[in-house]
């Protein structure tokens, strides 16, 4: 599954992996914004593509697999690219396709080089609301557990379908019933989690450990990274 592979990548070691999550977030945002505000032509994307490629190599991530994973945006982009093309703007369509792909690749590089907990903590110290971060954290934590359950259910449903031909209506209600059971399990699990939290003294307030230190190297990385993004933007805007 997508997130399992990305999770493994994010726990590798490299210069990029070692940088503070806030620094990486900043650089990624700078790159995304620089690309998004550049002129709508496929050529625009070239320097950005090079930058992301450099990042992938520096993070020692598998380039080809990364390129494949980022392709999840392509169906959507192709649809709209085609729409533009039909509307008589093939160049704009191509730009849409290439730029959205490079953007997805940039985000993938960010999450493939930053473990989820560090990323969330970085977002929190940049001002994301506490409760939201907690929820995203719990969501990610139990995504593995609950989607496994859903997979088992789907398997069971496939097995049953092989034996009996059911009407659409019955199949529809069976799916609703399956979701209700998945819900019930999630609900009971949430109660269990709360019980475990309460047993260790949780009384409604969350306290966190100190975030890791933002080193000088992180500052340099953030500064140089954003400056390069701006330069790339200037380059393509005035070429």
């Amino acid at each position: 599954m997508h997130h399992v592979v990305v999770e493994q990548w994010s726990r590798r070691h490299s210069f990029v992996h070692q940088r503070d999550a806030r620094a990486k977030l900043l650089v990624a945002l700078a790159l995304l914004a620089a690309l998004a505000t550049s002129p709508a032509s496929p050529v625009t994307a070239v320097p950005f593509a090079l930058l992301v490629a450099v990042g992938i190599v520096a993070a020692r991530l598998p380039l080809v697999s990364m390129l494949k994973k980022a392709a999840v945006v392509l169906p959507f982009s192709m649809l709209f690219g085609a729409v533009e093309w039909v509307a008589g703007q093939p160049l704009a369509g191509a730009a849409l396709l290439v730029k959205s792909y490079i953007s997805a690749l940039t985000v993938l590089l960010l999450v493939a080089s930053t473990p989820q907990p560090a990323l969330l903590r970085g977002m929190e110290s940049l001002g994301a609301p506490r409760l939201l971060v907690l929820m995203a954290q719990t969501l990610y934590r139990y995504l593995f557990v609950i989607s496994e359950q859903a997979q088992h259910m789907r398997l069971a449903a496939v097995c049953r379908q092989g034996s009996a031909h059911r009407s659409q209506r019955r199949a529809f209600h069976a799916a609703a019933g399956a979701l209700a059971i998945l819900f019930a399990r999630s609900y009971v699990r949430a109660e269990g989690i709360h019980r475990a939290m309460a047993a260790r003294g949780f009384a409604g307030e969350f306290h966190s450990l100190r975030p890791p230190r933002f080193t000088r190297m992180d500052a340099v990385f953030a500064g140089v990274g954003s400056a390069v993004a701006v330069l790339a933007h200037l380059l393509v805007s005035h070429a």
């Binding site: 473990p115 907990p117 969330l120 719990t138 990610y140 557990v145 939290m197 003294g201 306290h207 450990l209």
Partner: peptide
């Protein structure tokens, strides 16, 4: 799985002392 709800092992183990 219900007891270990924090994103990293260290944060999870520190959850109790922080609440104390």
């Amino acid at each position: 799985d219900e007891q270990l709800f924090m994103p990293t092992v260290l944060e999870d183990v520190a959850f109790g002392p922080l609440n104390q």
